[in-house]
């Protein structure tokens, strides 16, 4: 417990800017999202009509929103499963005690600093059917040329690949940090008991790594649902035929291309519920991690 300065008003003055920004630009608009989700704009946005929960009913009965939900879930599952598997494998490699490990780590995680839009632009080029490098490689080694981003089935895979690549660095950093906390003695003991590398990993390393894996699971979900907007906008704009229209892209289109502010607000509320659930899960588990760690 720190000793205190006696002043009564100064702390409130110091906190005022933060509280004001939070209240005006965070709490107030979120509350309005809730309110506006119960209205429908009419006469080109000049008038609002109260419609109760009709916006939610329309969302949950709309086949477009269903599709967007499914696309989001596939996208998120791809980003999480593929992204975490690859980055864990790389982190295990980079965690070996060899010369130059620091340099390797730097070379492996640097794309972390790239923005989703930069990643999207690069992959848009790589997937380009006439000049794209990827098309050439698939042609050369597998004998087929695909127009990735205009094919409704491949486009989602394409944006998953780009999104996974962009987030590899972030995941590797945290997996490496997690691996540092796996005690060497336990691994040594397992090895002496005759456990091979495969068994060592699944029986010792992986269970001990689970707090990190879970943290990254949540962070990657948040990234897939919110952070990947720029990537989608640059690469596919939600197309072709809504094949990559994740929830946040659908929200953006409803709000700023179709001016359906009520419907968009309802989608904001749905996303808010998602964030709250994810954050609470994360809070609870980080708390538990501290408890077990002590």
């Amino acid at each position: 417990m720190q000793s205190k300065f006696p002043n009564r008003w100064l702390p409130l003055i110091l906190l005022l800017p933060t509280i004001a920004v939070c209240a005006v630009f965070l709490y107030y608009p979120v509350a309005q999202s809730f309110e506006w989700s119960l209205y429908r704009a009419a006469f080109m946005g000049l008038k609002r009509i109260y419609v109760g929960f009709q916006n939610y009913v329309r969302l949950f009965t709309s086949s477009d929103y269903h599709k967007s939900l499914v696309v989001s879930l596939i996208f998120a599952a791809g980003v999480v499963v593929i992204g975490l598997s690859i980055s864990l494998a790389i982190a295990l490699l980079a965690n070996r005690k060899i010369r130059g490990a620091r340099i390797y780590r730097l070379l492996l995680i640097w794309p972390y600093a790239l923005s989703p839009a930069v990643a999207g632009t690069i992959w848009l080029f790589l997937f380009n059917p006439t000049s794209g490098v990827l098309t050439y490689f698939t042609d050369r080694f597998f004998g087929f040329r695909l127009d990735w981003l205009t094919n409704a089935n491949l486009a989602l895979l394409g944006v998953i690949v780009a999104a996974v690549w962009k987030n590899l660095g972030y995941n590797i950093v945290f997996f490496l940090a997690g691996l540092q906390n796996v005690p060497g003695e336990i691994l040594e003991a397992a090895r002496i008991d005759g456990a091979g590398p495969w068994k060592c990993f699944w029986k010792v390393t992986f269970p001990l790594l689970s707090p990190t894996t879970f943290f990254l699971f949540i962070m990657n979900l948040i990234y897939a649902f919110f952070g990947a907007f720029g990537l989608i906008d640059v690469m596919t704009k939600g197309g072709p035929v809504n094949a990559t229209n994740i929830l946040i892209y659908n929200l953006y289109r409803d709000a700023f291309q179709h001016n359906k502010w009520g419907m968009a607000s309802a989608q904001s509320v749905i996303l808010f519920v998602l964030v709250v659930v994810l954050t609470l899960i994360q809070f609870r588990t980080t708390g538990r991690r501290v408890h077990y760690g002590a």
Binding site: S33, W36, F226, A255, S268
Partner: peptide
């Protein structure tokens, strides 16, 4: 818990 997307329409209007 309040990233831009969950308040985007009212914030834009504000």
């Amino acid at each position: 818990m309040m990233p831009v997307p969950v308040r985007i329409v009212p914030l834009f209007d504000l």
